[in-house]
């Protein structure tokens, strides 16, 4: 099932929380929803789940408008802050959620057992949710979202409060599930989207400011190739001059003259790797380092969302 969001708008008073955004998520795609706090991520997700109404525009899930049809059977949703009944044992809670999502009686037990296993809740399954650590509560939240094996998963900050090991596990889990499901997950942890998502959507002040894979976003932001090189040669001046003569190199910067480190910026749409290597070979210099300098996602994010 795919999700099509079409000119979606939502205002709170005079403030537009979501301002005329449109995008699609295909089946089997994991979309990372990125943005500063208050950018409209949660609002958009709440509209997809039908929890809050839209002002204008439309959301279609598998071709059905959520305005017309209740699509919650097909959606697994982990709300922000992961609200749970703390006085309920894990197993009872999962059974409650499964029956609300109309999991048939004969599949109920199997489905609950599966979720307990997948989310690593076996040891804790008879404890009350209130007695669990935050990491385990988060797993219960994920388990309840997926209990009816939904085709669509909407996860609002799924890894908050987890320790690094748990984060890796949960990411792995989402990746696996994402192969056959349509997933939207929001986060403001940038390495997370890179690690988990096929596509990134950055939104700021209710508008989409970037849309693409991590690589395409980098390319867009970066423009020219930047290489950091270190060359063992008799003098830095010589290297500096030679680098400057190369046709693909637009700019050379001396970073450290004792260690002979340089930063080169290639001219647009060209790479300099070949030419630098050949130059060293011809001159008998030793190329000890050549590192493509990547614009970090953090920088892209900051650039797009700083106001």
């Amino acid at each position: 099932m795919d999700i099509v969001i079409d000119h979606l708008t939502k205002s709170y008073g005079f403030q537009k929380a979501v301002d005329d955004i449109s995008f699609q998520v295909k089946t089997g795609e994991i979309l990372g929803f990125l943005g500063p706090n208050g950018a409209g991520k949660t609002t958009t997700m709440k509209m997809v789940t039908g929890y809050i109404s839209m002002d204008s525009g439309d959301i279609k899930i598998g071709g059905n408008s959520v305005r017309v049809k209740d699509m919650n059977r097909y959606i697994g949703y982990l709300p922000e802050n992961n609200p749970l009944y703390h006085d309920m044992p894990v197993i009872d809670y999962l059974e409650f959620c499964a029956s609300l999502q109309q999991v048939p009686e004969e599949r109920m037990e199997e489905q609950i057992r599966r979720m307990v296993r997948v989310c690593g809740l076996d040891v804790e399954k008879h404890k009350k949710i209130g007695e669990l650590s935050k990491g385990f509560r988060q797993r219960v939240g994920l388990a309840q979202a997926m209990i009816h094996d939904p085709q669509i998963l909407i996860l609002d900050e799924p890894t908050t409060g987890l320790d690094p090991n748990q984060i890796v596990e949960i990411r792995e889990l989402i990746r696996q599930l994402g192969k056959e499901k349509t997933v939207i997950l929001s986060t403001h942890i940038l390495p997370e989207v890179e690690a988990t998502c096929d596509r990134i959507l950055i939104i700021n002040r209710g508008k989409i400011v970037a849309d693409g894979t991590a690589d395409t976003l980098r390319k867009q932001a970066q423009g020219q190739q930047v290489l950091r090189v270190r060359i063992e040669a008799p003098s830095y001046q010589e290297v500096y001059d030679e680098l400057g003569k190369l046709s693909t190199v637009g700019m050379v910067d001396l970073l450290d003259k004792d260690q002979l480190r340089f930063e080169t910026q290639s001219v647009a749409d060209q790479t300099s790797n070949n030419q630098i290597f050949n130059m060293c070979v011809n001159r008998g210099w030793i190329l000890t380092e050549m590192i493509p300098f990547e614009t970090k996602l953090e920088d892209i994010f900051r650039e797009l969302t700083m106001n």
Binding site: K46, T49, G50, Y51, D70, N72, R73, I75, Y77, P79, N81, P83, L84, Y85, H86, C97, L100, Q101, Q102, Q144
Partner: peptide, 12 residues
């Protein structure tokens, strides 16, 4: 507690 959001985003 926010559980109403969890409830109303189920098939109910």
């Amino acid at each position: 507690t926010g559980t109403i959001e969890m409830l109303l985003t189920k098939s109910i």
